[in-house]
Amino acid sequence: MTFDLSVITDHWRFLAYGIGVTVALAAASGAASLALGFVVALARLFGPRWAKHAVVLYIDSMRAVPLLVVLVWTFFALPILTGLTMRPFAAALIGLTVHLAAYAAEIYRAGIESVRPGQTRASLALGMSRAQILRRIVLPQALVRMLPAFGSLLSVTIKDTAIASVIAVPELMRQSETLAGQSFQPIEVYSFAMLAYFLILFPVTRGVDRLYRHVAHLGRS
């Protein structure tokens, strides 16, 4: 079995483009899901009862349905319902955001709930408004605890971008598939893909491990 790396070097631009799309998709859906997740978490914690139920249903549904199904449905079925055509990247962005926001919302909720209720009581006694309490007292304390979990979510986000390959988004996984098919050298190409993903993800998971250790001693405030 010969290992011919020329297929990689000859097409490095093609593969680099894929890496670029991977990073862009991860960053965009990561940011969007952080924002959407925050709104959802607030709705669950402070919203009216119907909102709470709706949010719980949404979150549990995202835990039950695979991301592949969400992406495929968003790309192929949603346009039929809405009449809008969608480019693969957009569909992937929407699907990933909606799916990840559910997890982000849970992280926000857990972080906020982990701050001792006494903190809120003391702040109310001082005459602060709920919004002020959240912004100035609870969130700053909660943020530190949430960091490791968000780090994990980032790692998951990057890995999940690879699933967007099934709806033809030209990220790294898709580019690798295409190149492997055309060159008949799947071993070299997929091995390269594995190396690339590993090099991107390893620093993230390592960083998360360090964060978890750093935060572990905090426990409850």
Binding site: K159, T161, A162, S176, Y190, Y197, T205
Partner: peptide
């Protein structure tokens, strides 16, 4: 453990499909 924590599963599936037989 570190290897598989840092790879997308879908890639592992493809890789297994092409590499395992060989």
């Amino acid at each position: 453990v570190e290897l598989f924590r840092n790879l997308p599963l879908i890639l592992v599936v493809y890789w297994a499909f092409y590499v395992l037989p060989i």
